[in-house]
Amino acid sequence: MMIQALIKRHLKIFLRDRWAVFFSFLSVIIILVLFTVFFRNAFGDLTETTEGTYLINGWIFSGVLMVATVTVPLGFLGIMVTDRETNAINDFYVAPIGRSTIVISYLIAAIIIGSVLGFINLIVGQLYIFLMVQTFLPLMTNILLILLIILSTTLFSSLFFYVVTFIKTSNSHGTLSTLVGTLIGFLAGLYVVVGNLPNITRYIMGLLPTLQLASLFRLVYMDEAMDLIFQDNVDIRETQTFLLGIRIEVGSFELTEPFLVLFSLLWIGLFVTLSIMRLKAFKK
């Protein structure tokens, strides 16, 4: 009951601050604009067929979905930074409720808001795709994407929760958000063609959760479009999927879906453990 009340409070505060919500989506908006204005041409002839448009839009919106699960929790966790900076959190500390419960309420709220806004992104993306190619993603794809949104939001919420526990001021949080917002397009392989990057860069990016999650989102989101485009053309599919960072490898080891999910769970385990260890920093 007490943690629910705190979560509700955090969510209300975030949603009522329209600028905070807007800035959490800023990277998403920038990516959409960049794709529409610049990157669409990079896909060449693909834009001329319905299947091609389906594939490109799948690429764009899978990327947007993944980026939102990164930037929204980070933006949201600014509430925790502000509460600590302004000492508003002290008012919770003098209530008969454990400090760990108070601190964890921010993490849970970050996962909730990241997931919910991710679902809204998913719906918006589907409506856009429907307008362009008159088709919806299959039901199973939608279910998998919902699960993926929750998985990705949990991962990045726990990662940034850990990071944010070290941040003392809203200014520092703003700088971090800008930095992440700028880098995320590259780290997720949105602004760059992953297959054309030097080996070492691809190797490092493959080790990071950003490209791993981006790959998972693409594999699920673009599955039907790839079937339609490549049909039985296995070789071209293989080349193109690695080129576009839909499938990724670390060295010569391909990170297939089960491995990507396993890695995501391991990342979550790592960041949750680190965050729990950080809770002692909140003790009086």
């Binding site: 007490m2 629910q4 705190l6 209300k12 505060i13 601050d17 000492n87 508003a88 209530a95 409720i97």
Partner: peptide
């Protein structure tokens, strides 16, 4: 320590829940 974005009553309701 009141939440600026919340009404006085919402602030009080949160306290009551705690």
């Amino acid at each position: 320590t009141l939440d600026k974005e919340l009404t006085v009553m919402e602030n009080l309701a949160l306290r009551a829940a705690l």
